[in-house]
Simulated assay, not measured.
Amino acid sequence: MKIRLLRVLVYLASAAAGLVLADLLVDGFRISWLDWWGFLVAIVVFAIVQSIATPVATGLAEKHAPLLLGGIGIIATFVSLLVVAFLPSAGIRITTAGAWLLAPLVVWIVSAIVTWVLTVVLIDRRSKAAAPAKS
């Protein structure tokens, strides 16, 4: 149960990191920092939508467009940003066409790296420490 909770926290932290870096790096992508509650909503909604969109997009691509399988992560990230950007209480606005193209890429790359690092640091090491030693 602890590992599952850690995975959820890693996923939320990686979503937050991706969104924050997109705010810092992408013109036209803005987080409303005065509305911290909205940003928390954006993180949770983004993570939920992405966790649903990824398997759905994978299934559709396998059936209808196998060439898209390599881009499923970025497609799911775009869909998640689309939902969050149009959610009035989320506190994220994407205002330019360039931001719509660049933000999913930034969020996807950053969240993938953060997920990988946090998984290695928090989960893999903890799992190895809890596993009985083999002789």
Score class of each variant (00 low, 15 high):
Ile113Ser: 09
Ile48Tyr: 07
Ser127Asp: 12
Arg30Met: 07
Leu81Trp: 05
Phe78Gln: 01
Arg125Asn: 05
Ile72Gln: 00
Val107Arg: 04
Ala57Asp: 00
Ala42Asn: 08
Val56Leu: 14
Ala17Ser: 13
Asp23Tyr: 08
Phe46Tyr: 12
Arg93Phe: 06
Thr96Ala: 08
Thr58Ala: 07
His64Asn: 09
Leu19Ser: 08
Ile31Gly: 07
Leu24Cys: 06
Ile31Asp: 04
Val41Ser: 04
Val120Leu: 12
Val20His: 02
Arg4Thr: 13
Arg30His: 14
Ile3Gln: 15
Ala15His: 09
Asp35Ala: 11
Phe86Asn: 15
Ile92Cys: 09
Leu34Thr: 01
Phe86His: 10
Ala99Cys: 10
Val120Lys: 09
Ala57Cys: 10
Leu68Asn: 01
Val45Cys: 09
Leu19Cys: 09
Ile123Trp: 09
Leu9Gln: 13
Leu87Pro: 00
Thr77Ala: 14
Val117Thr: 04
Leu122Gly: 10
Ile48Gly: 08
Ile48Trp: 03
Thr54Gly: 11
Leu12Ile: 00
Leu118Gly: 05
Val106Glu: 08
Pro88Arg: 01
Phe39Asp: 04
Leu40Cys: 14
Ile48Phe: 07
Ala130Leu: 15
Ile113Trp: 14
Val106Arg: 05
Leu68Phe: 13
Ala13Asn: 07
Asp124Met: 14
Trp116Gly: 01
Ala76Cys: 11
Ala17Thr: 02
Lys134Arg: 13
Asp124Ala: 13
Val114Leu: 06
Ala85Phe: 06
Val106Phe: 12
Thr115Pro: 13
Trp108Ala: 15
Gly28Asp: 02
Leu67Thr: 04
Val44Arg: 03
Val110Met: 11
Val79Gln: 03
Ile31Cys: 07
Ala130Trp: 15
Trp37Pro: 01
Ile52Cys: 11
Ile94Leu: 08
Trp37Tyr: 14
Leu81Thr: 06
Ala42Pro: 14
Ala76Ser: 11
Ile92His: 04
Ala22Lys: 04
Thr54His: 14
Gly70Phe: 00
Leu25Glu: 00
Val8Gln: 04
Ser14Cys: 07
Ala57Trp: 04
Leu101Glu: 05
Leu118Met: 08
Leu25Cys: 02
Ile52His: 06
Pro104Asn: 04
Asp27Glu: 09
Ala131Phe: 04
Ala90Cys: 10
Leu69Trp: 00
Ile31Tyr: 07
Thr96Trp: 00
Ile31Pro: 04
Leu69Pro: 08
Ser111Ala: 10
Val117Trp: 12
Gly70Met: 11
Val44Gln: 05
Thr77Phe: 10
Gly18Asp: 09
Val44Cys: 08
Leu81Pro: 05
Val49Gly: 02
Gly28Pro: 08
Phe29Ile: 00
Ser80Glu: 06
Asp35Lys: 11
Thr119Glu: 10
Leu82Phe: 15
Val117Phe: 15
Trp33Glu: 02
Gly71Cys: 15
Leu60Gly: 11
Ile52Val: 12
Leu82Tyr: 10
Pro104Cys: 11
Ile92Asp: 04
Asp124Val: 14
